[in-house]
Design a protein around this nucleic acid. Structure first.
Lengths: 124, 124, 124, 124
DNA sequence: GTGGTCTAGACCACT
DNA sequence: GTGGTCTAGACCACA
């Protein structure tokens, strides 16, 4: 692993987003433990307080639970909840912004659709 | 004009983005002067240093030129250059991220396309 | 250290040049931290904003990296890159100007060469 | 003629330097008139006050004289005086700086001498 | 501890 | 009038 952190966002936030991604992608499964704070801290060469902060946010978001003396676990149902929330947010906030930008740049919807379908076929 | 600033980004950055938008939309035309630093400062109730910072960035980006003792001007060709750059960036960086997110959230391309075309019709 | 600033150039620019010199001379080594913004500010009795401006330029120039919450570091390879760039710039831009000036003032090349060799011997 | 002014130096100063150059190169001869303030102002598209300032500096430097109602003239002996002054300044101030920079960049004197002699031959 | 941002007000040079 | 620079001091987020 590299320690490549973007400079325009706090490390703890980037870490937090990464964990969310890993849950969504099913790398971290519901009911299973996530890597320990220290493990992450060593592996990524960051302060353990920073890792703690990221995890704490995820606990507050209702995605992780802390079991004292054992570790942090992905909550049952976390993935489904995440999917619903993120989907709603995407459709309500992110997509309109993207569409606005497309229009501002004078890109035609056809071009976007073309790229989307091509990109979808590559995956096959 | 309002003085409504988002809290998650520095004011000078938001101002900078706003100027870019206004150039893209043709409100600020090539060869013409942009409002003076102090004018903006008064109008938006912010420090002139903050405005200066935003403008300076735009000079560095090659969108504005400073004419000593006169003011700041939109460079000739700025709009075209902006459009080309932003388009390229959008197609190369932003769009793939969006598509990745769409896929991650399990949203179908059909649904996206449906929203896009509906949104396009609203504009008519 | 003195706080002797020339009057014909902004302080932040002089500071910037000084840091470049110190990197070239190997006083600030690659991968190491440079003095903190506030440390410089106190030592030289200047505002921290002024120091920040100088450092920011160096970040933009690709000589320093910011590590969030830790400090600013000299980028790996900065010295070599600097040497190459400055050499190229010197030979392409500055030297021709000097030669033009020498010719304009009607100074013979022999005289220049004489001074150069003398100056070189003094160093021995 | 273009109106290409560098941004890091006042226009009046650049203009002033240009006149000095033209006197040194014998384009403006001793006893002859220099172009009128208005002529310059129109040709270079700058404010006549800016031109005036440049000329005034040259009067203060003892290079030009103003003849009321007629124009500005290059003083007799101006070229010789300029040559002497600039030569002295060059040898005392500028040359040492250049040599220091050469040394800092690790460029050998031989290389400089080579370029000098080559450049001299091109002129033949 | 680190750097980033902002303010309010001052002074400067240039046009 | 224009922008540039600087100060002194404040508050913030990050590690």
């Amino acid at each position: 692993m590299q320690e490549h952190w973007k400079d325009d966002q706090p490390i703890y936030r980037q870490l937090q987003d990464k964990v969310v991604d890993l849950i969504l992608e099913g790398v971290f499964n519901e009911g299973e433990a996530v890597p320990s704070v220290r493990q992450i801290a060593v592996e990524y060469r960051i302060n353990h307080l920073t890792v703690s902060k990221a995890y704490q946010q995820l606990v507050d978001d209702g995605l992780l639970v802390k079991k004292r003396g054992i570790g942090m676990f992905v909550i049952e149902g976390a993935r489904g909840q995440l999917l619903a929330n993120e989907r709603e947010k995407f459709l309500r906030v992110e997509l309109p912004q993207v569409l606005k930008r497309v229009k501002q740049l004078g890109i035609s919807n056809e071009q976007i659709i073309k790229i989307m379908t091509e990109s979808a076929q590559e995956e096959v």
